[in-house]
Amino acid sequence: MEKEAASKQSDFYQIVLGRRSVKSYDPEVKISHEEMTEILEEATRAPSSVNMQPWRFVVISTQEGKEKLAKLAMFNQTQVATSSAVIAVFGDMKSVEYAEEIYTKQVELGYMPEEVKEQLLTAFKPGYENMAARDMRDLVLIDASLVSMQLMLVARAHGYDTNPMGGYEKGKVAETFGLDSKRYIPVMLISVGKADKEGYPSYRLPVDTVTTWA
């Protein structure tokens, strides 16, 4: 039992400390729909404010989809062309519409009693429904960034490499893939695939440089 725990711990550190931003992939390696679904399911175990899970994904893996994306990501052509898929991550400005579904399921699964569900929905739902757009945008960007980091680590656990990208035409990406651009806020693109060569290590500032102890 102790040996198994040590092995899992070792795997965890290898995943976290061995992660690299990979920009070129083996174009012959494809990720199946089933495995990509597993990766996304595991990624969405990430935390979110009041469990609203405002992240939304567009998985771009077809030639047609990649051609559309390539026009919007001029500085990331290699990632788009060679990766198994590029995942466009969005934040849903109206995620509260799923509140009843999420909390009802929590009760059905035995995660909380009905009265707690009603108390929580009464406490936060009106605030979500009436929140200023700027504040909601900040909230969904934070939550969608959490799931994005988890997605990259989960992909590595599946044996794949990733690269987060912000260099693309964010004002056009939602409508290009059939989403309402006022509702769905672009967060980042994440290329996923098998690296055709190892990613480069990079320097990190010392903890004392980035941390204040209070």
Results as ranks from 00 to 15, higher is better:
E34Y: 06
I102M: 10
E114C: 03
E64C: 00
Q79Y: 00
T176L: 01
I60L: 09
E101L: 11
Q63T: 13
K172I: 09
Y111W: 15
M1N: 12
Q77I: 10
T209Y: 14
A214H: 15
T62D: 00
T176N: 01
L205E: 15
E175W: 04
A70M: 12
E4C: 10
V107F: 10
G178S: 03
L205D: 12
Y168T: 07
F57D: 07
S202F: 11
S95P: 01
V210F: 04
Y128K: 03
M112P: 04
K197L: 13
M36K: 02
E34L: 07
D92M: 03
K194N: 04
E35C: 02
L72P: 07
V22H: 01
F75S: 06
V147E: 06
G127A: 10
A157L: 01
H33L: 02
L205S: 11
R134S: 15
L139C: 03
S181G: 05
S10F: 04
E169L: 13
A46D: 10
D11P: 00
V154M: 02
R156S: 07
R19S: 08
K182W: 08
M165E: 03
G65D: 00
V29L: 08
P27I: 00
P113Q: 10
E118F: 05
V210Y: 09
S181K: 13
T37W: 08
